[in-house]
């Protein structure tokens, strides 16, 4: 992500996108591997990425599968493990990539009023990365 990602949140288009910054991080060591932005957004992405090994492990695979079963879900699909964290000012999303094991797309948005748009943009970005 050395270049501006094609799924960047502030691109113009018919669909008004939420302000959103992305990075690609290692789940194993929390390193932010690729990120096109600087400043505060980058710092936030770096700080969040640093916690990834613990964050992803906290609701471990076994626990997620067990919960999915109890709730009548489909534990076979438990590799789907999106994590959304919301503060008064920011929305953070961690989305492990299905086709790039050990990597997660990390995103931060400085707005909490467009949750649907934020998630749509994250999913579109994940789709793009998984298709690469």
């Amino acid at each position: 992500m050395n270049q501006r990602p094609r799924f960047a949140g502030d691109q113009s288009g018919e669909y008004a996108r939420a302000p959103l910054d992305f990075g690609l991080a290692s789940i194993a060591n929390g390193e932010l591997l690729e990120c096109a932005v600087g400043g505060e957004a980058r710092t936030r992405l770096e700080d969040m990425s640093a916690t990834l090994p613990v964050l992803v492990d906290t609701l471990g695979e076994v626990s997620r599968r067990r919960l999915a079963t109890l709730l009548g879900g489909e534990p076979a699909g438990a590799s789907y493990s999106e994590l959304v964290l919301v503060s008064k000012d920011h929305v953070y999303v961690v989305q492990p990539l299905q086709n790039r094991e050990g990597l997660a797309l990390v995103s931060v948005s400085p707005t909490t009023t467009s949750m649907g748009k934020i998630l749509s943009d994250v999913h579109a970005a994940v789709g793009g990365l998984d298709a690469e």
Binding site: G72, G77, E82, L83, L85, Y92
Partner: peptide, 19 residues
């Protein structure tokens, strides 16, 4: 979450595609 943003007060963790 407190490590990178102590203001986080809401979270959602997917268990599978539905739950």
């Amino acid at each position: 979450a407190d490590v990178f943003d102590p203001g986080i007060s809401l979270l959602r963790a997917a268990c599978c595609e539905r739950t």
